[in-house]
Simulated scan of single mutants.
Amino acid sequence: MKSNLQSIKLFLVVAFSCTSLLASLTPVLAKPIGSSPSDAYNGLRLRSDAKTTLAQAKTFNQPPIPAGRPPGGRVRGGAKRGQVAGCPATKPDLTALVHFTEEANSVINVWGQTTLERPSWFFYVPYTKDSPYEVEFVLQDQDDNEIYRKAIALPDKPGVINVSLPTTAPALALNKQYRWFFTINCDQEKNSPPTFVEGVIQRVQLNPAVLKELQTTEPLKRYVIYAQNGIWYEALTTLAQLRDQNPKDAALQAEWRNLLGSIRLDDIAGEPIFLGKP
Rank of each mutant, 00 (worst) to 15 (best):
V28N: 05
L29G: 06
L29N: 07
K31D: 00
K31I: 02
I33W: 14
G34A: 00
S35Y: 13
S35E: 05
S35G: 07
S35D: 07
P37N: 00
P37R: 01
D39P: 11
D39K: 14
A40E: 01
A40H: 01
A40G: 03
Y41R: 08
Y41M: 12
G43H: 15
G43V: 14
G43A: 15
G43R: 13
L44N: 08
L44P: 00
L44S: 10
L44I: 06
R45Q: 10
L46F: 09
L46W: 10
L46M: 14
R47S: 14
R47E: 15
S48T: 11
D49R: 01
A50L: 09
A50C: 07
T52H: 11
T53D: 08
L54S: 05
L54W: 04
L54G: 06
A55I: 05
A55Q: 15
Q56P: 10
Q56T: 08
Q56H: 10
Q56I: 03
A57C: 12
K58D: 07
K58Y: 08
K58V: 09
T59D: 15
F60Y: 15
N61Y: 10
N61W: 03
N61R: 03
Q62E: 05
Q62D: 01
P63V: 15
P63K: 12
P64N: 07
P64Y: 12
P64W: 11
P64I: 13
I65Q: 12
I65Y: 06
I65V: 12
P66T: 02
P66N: 02
P66G: 00
A67M: 04
A67R: 09
A67V: 03
